[in-house]
Design a protein around this nucleic acid. Sequence first.
RNA 1: GGGCGGAUAGCUCAGUAGGUAGAGCGCAGCCCUUACAAGGCUGAUGUCACAGGUUCGAUCCCUGUUCCGCCUACCA
Length: 891
Amino acid sequence: MTDKTLSKTYEPKAVEEKWAAEWLNSGCNAPDAPPGKPSFSMVIPPPNITGALHLGHALNSTLQDVLARYKRMKGFNVLWLPGIDHAGIATQNVVERQLGAEGRTRHDIGRDEFIRRVWKWKEESGGTIIKQLKRLGASCDWSRLRFTMDEGLSKAVRKVFVELYNEGLIYRGDFIINWCPRCHTALSDLEVNFTEKDGSLWHMEYPLKEPAGGVSSLTVATTRPETMLGDTAVAVNPEDERYKHLIGKTIILPFVNREIPVIGDESVSIEFGTGAVKITPGHDFNDFEVAKRHNLPALKVMDVDARMNEHGGRFAGMDRFKARKAVVEGLTELGLLKKIDQHKLMLGSCYRCSTVVEPTLSKQWFVRVAPLAAPAIKAVEDGEIRFVPKGWENTYFDWMRNIRDWCISRQIWWGHRIPAWHCKACGHVTAATVDPNRCAGCGGKDIEQDNDVLDTWFSSALWPFSTLGWPDDTEDLKRFYPTSALSTSFDIIFFWVARMIMMGLKFMDGKPPFKDVYIHALIRDACGQKMSKSKGNVIDPLVMMDTYGTDALRFTLAILAAQGRDIKLGEERIAVYRNFANKLWNLARFCHMNIEGMETAGAPVDAASLNMADKWILTRRSVCAVEVSEAVEGYRFDEAARGLYRFVWHEVCDWYVELSKQDLKGENGPGRKQCAAGVLVAVLKDTMKMLHPFMPFITEEIYSTLPGVAGGLMTAEFPAGKERFDKEAVDMELVMDVVRAVRNVRTDMNVMLDAKVECVCVSEDPGVRECLSTNEGYIKQLAKAASLTVSEPASPPKGAASGRATDGGRVVEVYVPLAGQIDLDVEEKRITKELEKVAKELEGVRARLAKPDFADKAPREVVEKEEARAAALAEKKEKLDAALGRIRGLR
RNA sequence: GGGCGGAUAGCUCAGUAGGUAGAGCGCAGCCCUUACAAGGCUGAUGUCACAGGUUCGAUCCCUGUUCCGCCUACCA
C-alpha cells in the first residue's frame, strides 16, 4: 500500500495478514545469538491443546506481547516461549467421544492404539489456538514451540518423578480422593468445583442391637442416604448428654443388618442435625479421617460408574442417585425415616465434565507437598518473587500454608505414564527414568509399569525450565532462567503458579522460576457476569478481530487492564478503539498528503528552526514516552494505553496537526514547511514506536510508509523521551488556552463558525504579551479571529464578551468585541453564573485561610498556594464584576 | 465460618506522599471547516456508599455499618 492509495478508513484485514506473515519470516521474534544484551524472558502459560482462543487468552497474550515487544525495543534480548499442554482428561474426552461415535470405547482398541489415535487427533486438529495467537500478533519465538508431551519435557517429568519418589516426597497409598464417575479418574482437590445446591437432610433412625437407658435407636442426619450402606459406625460428640451413654453400643444397620459401633468423636457438632452422624469412610473425606482415628474399616459401596456394588445388598447395580431414592423409600416403608429438612450444601463436580464427583477410597499417588511449600512460601516472603498486584500474595500464602497432599495419579491413558514398575514377585516399586527390565528390589523380571498417568499440572509445573531444555544443561537455561515475568490469571495461582514455584526451587538449585508474577484481570460481560457458553454471553475474540481489527481488540484489552479490578467488556468499547485506529490512520494520511513530493521530509530537523508548536509537540512526545515506559514497566498497561490515546488524539491530532497546517501548506515559506513536515514525520515515527507494543499491525504498516525509515518497528528503538523544551511547551499551553477562551466566547455568543471576530488579549506580563504576539498566527487561525490585539491592561473594548486564559499562574484576559451581535441576556446570565461560582470558591478559600491552625500547621507551600489562589480568585471576581457592569451599562 | 476486592458523573472506569475530582461513552448545542462524521468545536452533570475517628484540612488514612462481587472452608 503506497502513500498515494491510503484508503479513507483503516482496513485491518490485509494489513494484519501481511505483517503476521512478515514477522514470521523475519525471525525477529527469536532472541539474538549471545550478545551483551540483557535477557528478558517469559514462558507463555500453556493453553490446552483442545482449547480455542477466548478473551482471557486474548487479554493475557496481549499484555505479554506488550511486554515482549516493549522490552525488545528497549534493547533486551527477549525470549517469549510459547507452547501448549496435553490436557490429559480434556483431550482424552475428545477422542473418546470420537470413538463413541464409532460405537467403540478405548478399551475396545487398547491402550497403544488409543494413544496413537490421540496423537493423530493432535496432529490434525490440536493446537488451533496457536494459529489464533499468531493472528493476535503474539510475538512468541514460534521456533521454540513446546508441548508437554514432547520427548524433552517427558524426560523432565520422569526425572522429577523419580527424584521425588526416591526422596520420599512421592508416595502411593489408599486414601479417599475425588472420583469422577464419568471420566473414570481421580481428581486433585483443585480439579473439583464446589457450588451451593439445594438438598435435603434426611433424618434416619438406626435401631440399636440392645436398648440402652430406655433408648432403642439412634437417629442420624445425612445429605446422602445411599451411602448408609457403607456405614461402619455412628459418631456422637462425647460431651453430648443425650448420647454419651450410647458410646460403645452396637447398631444394626438397616437393609444389610451389619453391626456397627457407636463411637464418640469431638468433630461431631452437638447442634447440627440430630447430633449423631453416620460414618462412611469409603465415601466421605471427613468420615475417612474419623475412621482413621478410631481404627474403623472402610467399605466401598460403589463401582467406577458410581453404581452401588456388591456391598449394596438389594440396591446393588443401581446408580447412586437411583439408590438414594430407593434407600429413602425403603426406610420409609420400615418406618425409619423420621424427617426431611431442606438443606443447602456444597456439591463438588468435575471441572472437566461437571459430573458430581464421588469421594472414593482408592489407591493413588500423592506428592507430599509441605516440604516443597516451605521454601516456596519463603521465596515470596523474601521478595524474591513478587506478585503484581501485591494483594494476591495473601491468596498464595493462605493456600500454601494450609496445603494438602497432591493427588497426581489419573486413571486415564493420555498423559505421562507413571514411571514406576511393580514387581509381581516381591511387590517392590521401581521408579526409573529409563524403562527397567528387572525389579530393583529382588532383581525379578516379572515387573509391570503402573497403569496410571500423571496429572497434567505435574508436567506444567516444570514448564519454566523443562521448556528451556532441562534436565540437560542448556545454553537457554543459562540465559533465560529464571524467567523475568509470568503473566496469568488468578484462578490458576494454585494450579500452576504455586506448583511452578515449588518445582523450580526444588530442581533449579533454589532459583525461582520467575521474578514477577503479574495477575491479570478477569473479563466479564458488560453486566459483570462471568462469560460462559451456557449463559450465551461470550464475546469471541476472533469475531472481534474480524469486525474491529486486531489492534482495536488489543488496545481495548490493554486500556481496560487496570490492576485489581475485573474487566467488564461490552462490544461498544472495542468500537471506540477501532475509531482510535482509524484516527491514527487518518493522521498518517494527513501526513502523507502534506509531505508528498518532499524529498527531505524524513530527514532530521535542525533544532534551530523549530518553532514553539514544534517544540511543544516534541516535548509532549517525550513526556509521553517516559510515562508509557514507566507504566509498562510497572505493569500498568491501562495507564500506558490511556497516555498514548490522549497523546495521539488530544495532542497530536487536536492541536499539532491544526497548528502545523499553515506551515505545511507553505503559507509561511519553504523553511517552515520543511521544518513542520520534518517534525510531523518525526512525531509520527515516535508515535508508531510507542504504540507498537499495543497495536503492532497498524503501526508497522504506517511506519513502513514513512520517509527515511529503515527496518521494521519490532527492532526499532523505543523513544527515550530525552528531547524536551519545557519553557516553550508551557508558553504553547498558554496560547492554546487563549484559543480555547476565544472559542468558548464564540460558542456562548452563538457566533457563526465562519464569522471572523476581533480579539483583544490583555496581560500585565510583558513575557505573556510577547508570547501571544509571536503566536498571533496560531490564535487567529485556530480561534478564527480576524485580528488580534495584544495590550497592557487598559479599559476593555466596548460591547465585548470576555473570557480568560490561565496557565501556569499566568493570566490573560480575552475580550471579543461583538458590538451589535452580543446577546446581552445571554452574556449577563453567563457572567452571573460564573461570578457565583467564583464567589463561592473564594469564600471557601478565604475561610480556610482565616483559620489560625491552617497557617500554623499546613506546609508553607500549601498556604502560599492557597493565598495565591485567593488572590487570583479575587482578581477574577473583580474582572467579572466589571464585565457584568459593562454589560448592564449597554442596556 | 475465614479471607480478599469493589462502592467516584446517566453508564463503564481512572485518580489522589491527605490540599481546586478526571477520561471514554452517552447527553445538549453548533458544524458535512478537503486527514478523519469511525469526525470537529463548545457545554452540562458529582453530599467521591453510610456513620464515626485522626487531621488545620479526608474522596484518599483508621474504625464500624450497609450493599455487591469473588476466593476459600469436612458441620454430616
